[in-house]
Design a protein around this nucleic acid. Structure first.
Lengths: 159, 159
DNA sequence: GTTGTTGCAAATTGTTTGCACTGGT
DNA sequence: ACCAGTGCAAACAATTTGCAACAAC
């Protein structure tokens, strides 16, 4: 369990900024550190509530926001879940792709869009942040012609 | 004005499917054909209401949905505006990039992600649809270090 | 006349905010 | 003790849905 270590670190970071490590924040961090996946706010709320029943929905949002400010968590915009959060492991993250059929979110290598980032940077002066939104498309199962698999709930894990 | 021609065409298309060309649909199409930009639903509603005061918000959504089914309109998911709609000019479309600073949406060449699409298709079996979500990042103005421009409402047109 | 569509109002979903109180430091 | 955070309820924005009236074919 890296959870506790992480929380300890974040606590220090928070304090060093005049902020505080609270029960709610501990709960949210524990959830994020334990799972590691892409959790939606509601999802995080649910699990955090188990750890600490007093944690409130609004607090989860505020906490995630605060932690994002600190650079501790990152969020990805996914159509289905709305927004997904996960710990920022420091350096490079991975990208995400969401199937518009079944809603599954899968990870993609971080360097996938490097060329695109550079190209757009040069040609349009626009700094693309590839981790910030999930690419959209169809996963293998959902792309398959009718008759086979491809039903929601079937293929992928996650949510 | 290609508007009327377009509407005529779509009308035929609709009828050929047992659907109908109604006042509301005409209004929405007129707005889309006139502007051509990426309009949000609320925006379309507003302009359509001018053309025909009876057009209702819910109808706009249903109309956009129906037209999307026909392949007449396409939508892009943008964090700010929610969802932006525009006519599908037949073949290849352009991609979109949204500045997370000022919210400006700019177009990018359609072939920009071709390599990525292919790479992901091969390696992950995932069919990326690059036009479906806007890339996120910072536009030139907003990326510039403090002290300069980069304020909302300043840089880009559109919305 | 049939039935695809609309208008309206109310329900959903995801997220934010004002405010008085509580708990970290 | 002081003030950052919290719980709560209510506000919000974007989008959807049930249903009766309506209008395009």
């Amino acid at each position: 369990m890296t959870s506790e270590a992480t929380i300890e670190e974040v606590g220090t970071l928070l304090r060093s900024r005049g902020a505080r490590m609270t029960r709610a924040r501990r709960a949210v961090l524990t959830v994020l550190a334990r799972d590691g996946g892409h959790l939606g706010a509601e999802e995080i709320l649910g699990r955090a509530t188990v750890l600490d029943p007093s944690v409130h929905r609004a607090t989860v949002y505020r906490t995630l926001d605060a932690l994002a400010d600190l650079g501790v968590v990152q969020h990805v915009h996914v159509r289905r879940t709305g927004t997904a959060y996960h710990l920022a492991h420091g350096g490079r993250e991975h990208l995400h792709a969401e199937c518009r059929g079944c809603g599954a979110v899968q990870d993609l290598p971080a360097d996938l869009l490097d060329d695109v980032v550079e190209a757009v940077g040069h040609r349009a002066g626009f700094t693309v942040e590839p981790t910030h939104v999930a690419l959209s498309g169809l996963c293998a199962a959902c792309a398959a012609p009718a008759g086979g698999p491809g039903e929601p709930g079937g293929g992928a894990p996650g949510r």
